[in-house]
Design a protein around this nucleic acid. Sequence first.
DNA 1: TATTTGACCAAGA
DNA 2: ATCTTGGCCAAAT
Length: 98
Amino acid sequence: MNFEEQCYELLKKIPEGKVTTYKHLAKALGSNGARAVGNACRKNPNAPQVPCHRVVKSDGMLGGYAFGVDQKARLLRKEGIAVSDKLRVNLEEYLFEF
DNA sequence: TATTTGACCAAGA
DNA sequence: ATCTTGGCCAAAT
């Protein structure tokens, strides 16, 4: 199991209608490098399997998405998450921690 | 082996 | 509020 795979495994555990942050995710992986997580996601070899769109920055901003932030925002909204016009979500309400 | 890059973060100016 | 700085970690070059 390498870092990336663990990353995906965790991502798959995020329930619908919830999001997590790169930082929390990193910590759950026993690391302090939030970028390493994003790095793993952006490659994302298993695009359809892993819900990379449920990961946002620690301040609630979406961050980025391999297929475009617009898609990310749409998917999230489709799952019942309110994404503000400026690509932002309510962490208080949707944050999921491991 | 060394450097750069990236879907980041927190603290300071 | 915006910008810079230094720090973080893994993968790619």
